[in-house]
Write a protein that binds this DNA or RNA. Structure first.
Lengths: 205, 205
DNA sequence: GTCTATATTGGGATAGAC
DNA sequence: GTCTATCCCAATATAGAC
């Protein structure tokens, strides 16, 4: 959110809190820092959200829903499985590029408090939104377009793994790359085509 | 470490701290909890390690080195690239299975403090230990065993992504799987063969 | 709704006896 | 080396004026 000063206090707090939590995690975040960034005062945080825990949960679910719905949509467009995979990867990379700290933040907070994921799943209705994709995949298997031994669950997790891991492991990979004399940013750029090819090579019949 | 009471105080602190940091992260960890688990008293932590920061850094590097060297070795055995990939994946899965909380802990702490990775890279000598693998891969490309367009960097990251992501995203995937009526533990078990096949299908000429 | 001032506790760190 | 007791600051949270 760019023009934070145009929002009302409650919205400003949410945007500021999103930034600070994403940067430092729940345990590392400071209410003072959130207040400063929102341009208000600590007491007002408690006036609107009662406690750090409640503020966190609300903000976490808002941000996570915003990002997840962004790329779930890719699978809901028309097209072959191959096209959908490419579209998803493009969309995914775009979102990750703009929200580099989100993945590690997200997975770490869910590990700390798995019930957050229950709430998110309920909000997002994954099950409903992926039904058609699963059917389509079975059809394309029957039609001999993709390999018989491809499993939907594993395929989905493989795609997400390949796409998101370089962001979760950003500073780790960056350091190793530089040890080998490679450039991390260039590597990320290359991945946009490499990953799609890797997946498609692996599943096409 | 199972028999913590047989160790001397310093070693007991390290093992206890490893557990507590891995469980709660640096920010969430409490010196009191580490002292309790080590069966000693808070003051002694400071006697041996001066501060929480110093204790953390020492413990982090010990644990990370222990785990990383475990699976780097897989690439140093004899065999074809395909065999090495399978061996690495087996070894990797074994280690992750025994250290489920390690991946998210590791990547989160490195994000918080990337200079830790510099120190780890220096200790582990990645560059040296991977030189032969890179040569071998180029040779097998020349020999027409693997596809011409395979890139070493991306291949390595792909393998690690596919292997480690299900552990980083453990509670996330678990929740989504259960929403679809699948079982996460069964899914992990299947992955031992699925991932190797996925990679090999994708790179073989 | 928004502020200043303050209460309260938690937790890292140190002093000092043994 | 190991302990008890204590210091002290940081950080969440609340009271109460405006």
């Amino acid at each position: 959110m760019d023009n934070i000063e145009e929002l009302n206090a409650e919205q400003r707090i949410i945007e500021a809190a999103a930034d600070v939590f994403e940067e430092s995690g729940f345990d590392g975040a400071r209410m003072q820092q959130i207040a400063d960034k929102a341009g208000i005062n600590k007491a007002l945080l408690h006036y609107y959200f009662r406690s750090k825990d409640l503020l966190f949960e609300k903000v976490f679910l808002i941000v996570a829903e915003r990002i997840f719905s962004g790329f779930i949509k890719a699978f809901e467009e028309d097209g072959t499985i191959f096209q959908k995979i490419e579209l998803f990867l493009t969309k995914h990379q775009e979102l990750l590029y703009k929200n580099r700290r989100f993945p590690i933040f997200f997975f770490n907070e869910i590990s700390r408090n798995p019930t957050l994921m229950k709430k998110l799943v309920a909000k997002l209705e994954f099950n409903n939104r992926f039904k058609n994709l699963i059917l389509q995949l079975e059809n394309e298997k029957e039609a001999g377009i993709i390999r018989q031994d491809v499993d939907v669950k594993h395929l989905m997790i493989n795609i997400v793994s390949l796409s998101v891991f370089p962001y979760i492991g950003r500073p780790v990979i960056k350091e190793i790359m530089s040890d080998f004399g490679y450039n991390y940013e260039k590597f990320l750029e290359e991945r946009k085509t490499v990953v799609a090819n890797f997946v498609i090579n692996s599943i096409k019949a």
